[in-house]
Simulated assay, not measured.
Amino acid sequence: MADTFSTRVLHLTTGSTETVTDLTEACADFLADAASGRDGLLNVFVPHATAGIAVLETGAGSDDDLLAALRTLLPADDRWQHAHGTPGHGRDHVLPALVPPHATLPVIAGRLELGTWQSVCLVDTNVDNPDRKVRLSFLG
């Protein structure tokens, strides 16, 4: 059987605060349609200069810990040369260097192969742009 490629774009509204949005269920729904029980790779990509994709535990405080760590590493103040938008917005443009805009994950028998506590998440610290797209692509 020849390799197949499928893709879908998710449209999300992240709101006016820093967020970690769990995409795991959306990834599973996409794979139910796209993978058809096949092995392959899922690529998750956010085409924005101020957001990233992380694989981490959620719901037990790790998502809040990540945002707190990013506030420490990338303070929202006037130190940034990229100075348009809300105060400290320049840090949002540095975020993808620490939380990359993509993740490629294994798919086995049509299911995302994550560890017990792992989730696929959109990390968005940009309070100026709540409208986000995330591209899911399956190759298998």
Score class of each variant (00 low, 15 high):
M1R: 12
M1S: 15
M1Q: 12
D3K: 15
T4V: 12
F5N: 01
S6C: 10
T7L: 09
T7A: 15
R8P: 00
V9I: 13
L10E: 04
H11I: 01
H11M: 06
T17V: 15
E18W: 13
V20N: 04
V20I: 09
T24N: 06
E25A: 14
A28L: 02
F30E: 01
L31A: 00
L31I: 02
L31Q: 01
A32M: 04
G37W: 11
D39V: 04
L41G: 05
L41V: 13
V44H: 07
F45C: 03
V46F: 08
V46P: 04
H48N: 06
A49F: 07
T50P: 00
A51N: 11
G52E: 10
I53W: 14
I53T: 11
I53S: 04
A54V: 10
A54K: 14
V55P: 13
L56H: 08
E57I: 04
T58S: 02
T58K: 08
T58I: 07
A60P: 05
L66T: 13
L66K: 09
L66G: 09
A68T: 15
L70S: 06
R71T: 07
R71P: 03
T72G: 07
L73Y: 06
L73T: 03
L74T: 06
A76D: 05
A76Q: 14
D77N: 13
D77I: 08
D77A: 09
D78T: 11
D78R: 04
W80V: 05
Q81D: 10
H82K: 03
H82W: 05
A83E: 04
A83R: 15
G85R: 02
T86G: 00
T86H: 15
T86A: 14
P87Q: 07
H89F: 06
R91G: 03
R91F: 03
D92R: 08
V94M: 08
L98G: 10
P100A: 15
P101I: 06
P101H: 10
H102T: 04
A103C: 06
T104D: 05
I108N: 00
A109H: 14
A109R: 13
R111N: 09
L112W: 02
T116L: 00
Q118A: 11
V120Y: 12
C121M: 11
C121V: 12
L122P: 02
T125Y: 14
T125I: 15
T125L: 12
N126C: 01
N126F: 11
P130K: 09
P130N: 04
D131Y: 03
K133H: 14
V134R: 03
R135W: 11
L136I: 06
F138G: 00
G140A: 09
